[in-house]
């Protein structure tokens, strides 16, 4: 699971009012190389919650990979776009856990796949 996915995922536990963002605990992380596209990062920026990315990088022990705020010239700022690309698309969470911030229900990430089935549906 990439951090771009973490930025998109939200808790859907019944009755939870504020299930975003999910807390992330990482046991195993892989780094991979993905083809860079500044255009893609620029396309995604308006849909992202930047402070959530900044916080989750801190939580998983990788602070300072990206600036605290999106620079005004983001679309033309290659250094920024490359840093965002790396943080969002090149860190792969292999094993760990997502946790609903409100109900504290936990969802395991195994072999890279988060299991977001609600507990009663989990075997």
């Amino acid at each position: 699971m990439l951090l771009l996915a973490h930025n998109m995922l939200t808790s859907h536990v019944k009755g939870v009012k504020n299930g975003y963002p999910m807390l992330l605990k990482v046991n195993e992380i892989d780094e991979k190389e993905i083809e860079f596209s500044g255009e893609f990062i620029t396309r995604m920026l308006p849909r992202l919650q930047w402070p959530v990315l900044v916080q989750v990088l801190k939580d998983i022990g990788k602070p300072d990979l990206v600036p605290a705020e999106v620079p005004e010239d983001a679309a033309d700022n290659e250094d920024f776009l490359k840093a965002a690309h790396h943080a969002l698309l090149e860190l792969d969470i292999i094993n760990g856990e997502l946790e609903c911030p409100e109900s504290h229900m936990k969802f395991p990430i195994t072999d890279g796949i988060p299991n977001l089935l609600i507990k009663e549906e989990q075997e």
Binding site: A5, T10, R47, L116
Partner: peptide, 21 residues
């Protein structure tokens, strides 16, 4: 490279709206 999510699509989606093109 593909992100895979195991979830029940009959439940509310565990994803922020309008995340995809």
């Amino acid at each position: 490279d593909v992100d895979l999510i195991q979830c029940n699509l009959a439940d509310p989606l565990p994803v922020q709206p309008k995340s995809f093109d």
